[in-house]
Design a protein around this nucleic acid. Sequence first.
DNA 1: CGAAATTTAATTGCGCGCAATTAATATGGG
DNA 2: CCCATATTAATTGCGCGCAATTAAATTTCG
Lengths: 152, 152
Amino acid sequence: MTNAPKLSDQLCFAAYSFTHALNRAYRPLLEPLGLTYPQYLVMLVLWEADGQTVKEIGERLKLDSGTLTPLLKRLETIGYVSRRRGKADERQVIVHLTDDGRALSDKAAGIPIELGCAMGAELAEIADLRERLLAMRDRLGETGCAVGEAEG
Amino acid sequence: MTNAPKLSDQLCFAAYSFTHALNRAYRPLLEPLGLTYPQYLVMLVLWEADGQTVKEIGERLKLDSGTLTPLLKRLETIGYVSRRRGKADERQVIVHLTDDGRALSDKAAGIPIELGCAMGAELAEIADLRERLLAMRDRLGETGCAVGEAEG
DNA sequence: CGAAATTTAATTGCGCGCAATTAATATGGG
DNA sequence: CCCATATTAATTGCGCGCAATTAAATTTCG
C-alpha cells in the first residue's frame, strides 16, 4: 500500500487550502473597493511605486502577461490605472495609477490590520511563517533534488 | 501615507505565491499521470477511502460542486473514476475508483518524496508549518476579530 | 546598414474556484 | 398524506493562472 503519511503532500494541501481561505477572507473586505485579491496585489505594487511596466509588476508578483494583461485591462476599465506604451521602448506597457487609484489606498489601509487580526497570530509568528514560505517557494523554483532526474 | 509594513499582507502574498510555486513543482510530476494538482487531491481522497459522495470529497478538500462536478467528469472521461447516483438517496453522486484509478496510486507513490525533497525542509519543519497553516485557515473561517464589525 | 536573435505584451485555450441559480430528491410538520 | 423546507448536484458566469503561440519593437552582430 501507499499509505505513507505523505507529510509533504499534507503541507501542500495545507498551503493550498490556507490560500483559498485567505481569498475568502479578503473577498468581503475587497468587495467594497471593487477589487479581487490579485487586483489588490497589483494595486499594492503600484502604491509602492507608480509607473511600472507589466514585466516589473509580473516579476514582483510572479505572474506573466497572460494573467496580467486582462487583469490590468479590468483595472483600467474600473478607472484605477492607465496603460500606455513606453516612449523610449514601445514594447513596454507602463501602468500608472489614476487619481482614483491613488486615493483608493486610504480606503484599503485598514485591510492588513483586519486580516492580521482574523488570522489571530502574533506579529512574530506571521513574520516567521512568511519567511519560511518564501524560502521554500524559492527553493521550489530551483531544479530541486535529484530523485526525479534519472541521476543525470 | 499608508506605508505601514503590511506584514499580514506579506504573509498572505507569501502563501499565495508559495501555493503557485507548489503547483508549478507538481505539474511535471503529475503530467505523466494525466492529472492536475486538484485532480490529484481528489485521487488522494479516494485512495484513502473509495466510494465517497461529491459532498464528502468537497468537505475534505473544502471545494464545492461548482468546482468538483466538472473536475470529476474529467476524471471520469480519463477513466480514473466512475460516478453514479446513490441507490438509497438519489440526490447523491457516489464516486468510485476504476481499476486504472486504483492502479495509479503506485505510479503516484514517489511524488510526496520528490516534493518533500524539492522543498528542502526537515520533516519536523514541514509538520510544524502544516499545523500552523491549517490552524490559521480554520481561524480565518470563523467570523474573526471585531475590528471590522462595528463593535457588534 | 540589415538580417537574426531577443525582449515585451497580447492572445488563445483550458482548468480551476466560487458565487448564484436551478433541478431533483428527501424529509418533516400539519 | 401533502406541502413546505432541506439537501445534494449540476449549471452558469466570471476572474484568475499558466502554457503556448503570435506580433511588434529592439538589440546584436556580421
